[in-house]
């Protein structure tokens, strides 16, 4: 594992911690898309079906469990926690995520490495992760103002994807084999989705104003 991959995993972890911190400290999930969080929970649950069958390293196993547990905890808080659920912006969270799930599943049935349950679900999770941030971006755009923690949450998620791409470039030059084309292509698409957000985040940082996404 190289430093970029590790840094990518850490920024991913930090983004989740920021979200948990926001929910825990403010007892509010305002500005957070439940649909995106549910998609991430689905992503982790379907990708890590190999948790008990394929052992890579202790690090990988622990991270997989952390990602599954934290994503389920966030969804639980937003749906069931008596205080947190009241702050959920249901009317702003309008992205039609069910069609995206369906499209990703059909794509996974058509484009996969092997036609087995584990491989189809693995491909499904990769496709779904690429677009899972969309409901969140739509919600931020519709609500206009973005609070600091929510902005940082999305920023760290984007950084995680960017670092994964640098990790692939690094691996390309230092290892002769490493990954799967499905993950690479989807990863590029996923990172592209953040480009717009990064741009406006940079603008708000440069001008020292509150982050706002144009409608």
């Amino acid at each position: 594992m190289n430093i970029f991959r590790f840094a990518g995993d850490m920024t991913h972890l930090i983004s989740i911690l920021i979200l948990l911190l926001k929910i825990y400290a403010t007892k509010s999930c305002a500005g957070i898309s439940l649909k995106t969080q549910e998609l991430y929970a689905l992503v982790f649950l379907t990708r890590y079906l190999d948790l008990f069958t394929d052992y890579v390293s202790l690090y990988n196993t622990v991270m997989k469990i952390v990602f599954i547990a934290s994503s389920l905890a966030i969804v639980w808080c937003m749906r069931r926690h008596p205080l947190v659920r009241r702050s959920y912006d249901k009317d702003l969270d309008t992205f039609r995520h069910q069609y995206v799930v369906l499209a990703c599943f059909v794509l996974a049935l058509l484009l996969n490495e092997k036609f087995t349950i584990q491989e189809v679900f693995w491909a499904f999770s990769i496709y779904l992760e690429a677009v899972a941030i969309l409901p969140q971006l739509v919600l931020l755009q519709r609500s206009g103002n973005v609070d600091n923690l929510t902005g940082q949450y999305v920023l760290f998620l984007g950084a995680y994807r960017g670092l994964y791409i640098i990790n692939w470039i690094y691996r390309y030059f230092t290892e002769d084999h490493f990954t799967r084309w499905i993950a690479c292509v989807s990863g590029l698409v996923q990172t592209g989705l953040y480009a717009d957000f990064f741009y406006y985040y940079y603008l708000s940082w440069k001008t020292n104003t509150k982050l706002k996404l144009p409608a």
């Binding site: 991959r5 995993d9 693995w122 084999h177 799967r180």
Partner: peptide, 10 residues
Amino acid sequence: KLFDGTKDEL
């Protein structure tokens, strides 16, 4: 082969 099906990333 570059894309050898390694699944060691998260």
